[in-house]
Amino acid sequence: MARHHGPVLVDTNVILESHRIGAWAALAGGYPVETVEDCVIETQTGFQRRRAEQQIDAAALRASLAGIHAPGDREIAAAVVRASDIALDIGERSLWAHTLTRTDGWVLCGPDKASLRFGVRLGYRDRLVALEQLLKEAGYRPKEPLKLAYTSKWLEKTLGELVLAEEADRT
């Protein structure tokens, strides 16, 4: 597959994992990385929902991003009515609400199965990418191994399962 050069939309999990393994600079330097305001908030201490929280400098994070979006009720409503049975967290929902407004060549990196299922249901399977793939194509080799849910192999397997699950739900 050719290296992606367009916008990369990332969620809170990806920002946290990239910082944990020291790969954020490589990711944000290799692609125009964008996210939503809710995800930026969720990367800050007190909102990470992690036992050991990382110190992520908000100003530096904002400066490294190519775009930070803040979808309103209209965009959120448009996303929710299409799959309100999939319970996303605030940042994940906000990211998809923004993503659905775009017409350019975006890809989305967010490893949670619910977020992936949302993408599969709405027909965006081919736009879902693994952090491992993005880092590899940017020429970065993580010194610390990525958690399983950020690997290309796991994503491929999971997307296959979700496609089948969605088909089963429809029939």
Binding site: I86, A87, G91, E92, K113, A114, S115, L116
Partner: peptide
């Protein structure tokens, strides 16, 4: 099954 996200 991807019906609720881990964070949620």
């Amino acid at each position: 099954e991807g019906r609720i996200s881990t964070r949620r």
